[in-house]
Amino acid sequence: MRKFLYKILLFVLLLCIGPAYVVYYNLKHDPYGVVLGNMETQFTEPNVRFLKVKHLINNPNKHDSYIMGSSRALKMNPDSISIPGKWYNLAYSEGLPSEHIIDLKTLLANDVQIKRLLIAVDNITYYVDDKVHSNQVPRKRYVNWHDPYFEFVFLKPDKKLKKTIEAQIDNPNKPFYDIYGTGMPQSSFKDLWATNNPEKYVANKRFEKPTWAFYYTPKVDLALKEIAQLIELCNKENIKIEFVVNPMHKATFLKQDLKEYYSFLKGLAALAPYWDFSGLNEITTNNFWYYETSHFRTVIGDRMLDIVLEGKEDTFGQRITKDNIDQVISKKKEEVLRYKEQEKE
């Protein structure tokens, strides 16, 4: 027995050399911000979903109203909202309604104040399956205070991530994630550049390529079912909920199957009235209002907040209900046809 234990011990110790280095690396660099949670030394995209929920659990009364959705909703600045409410941007990359339900339940279970929600939806909502996210470390959910540490401490150092971290250390324009404030990433560099060089900015080739991942497959029925569950949860918990459909950049908008898009709009209207900023309009067809073909600029996000929350009059966006949805869809179809014909010319 002694010989056996000695051999096993030696074998296990030798086997631990690799993991020990990994633990050291992750404690030093904390690529997803989960282990140390220090945003001042965070150079890559942290696991925002985890960190935000954790932050709110630690500060249950700091906020009472939340913006949720994908990273596009991250362009809506809570500081620009002047109506009553302590707003926080709880959005994260590819955030989905089914995940919002899980996070809301976690927050409610931890006595976090929730009075109002603004849910931003778009093609990601009805094209991305939440199962895809279960394997993606930047999108892991918050379960409890100890659950993720084991996983994140032993995370294999990623070569590309390592390079990104090294490159960002001396980058003066590196983004800063204001997790503990507004919940938004802070980077004004691109906005400044766009304002100073508008012609060059809009002509950039990146605006020709739609933002589309290989795992995007339509799931409209499932998305609507999840949204219905979200509404049900909010009604039960006495939370006021409002939906907006994001203005998708024309390239990304046209990449999707428009039948799915129309069916989503119609289904959503049957569940709740909402604000629609999507389609081919003055904003979505102008590259100037976008960072790339996925994210609209913060100035657009703020404009949307003014319309939706503060009731400002604007030509951008329209209120959709189950009574006007058919009319709106017909109009949208015409706009698409007209746009495609213009493009041909």
Partner: peptide, 20 residues
């Protein structure tokens, strides 16, 4: 032989790390 076993164990550990 032990290098062979060690390599398999290390490889299992490495792959396990990359998958849930």
């Amino acid at each position: 032989r032990y290098v062979f076993y060690y390599s398999i164990a290390l490889f299992v550990l490495y792959t396990w790390w990359n998958t849930d």
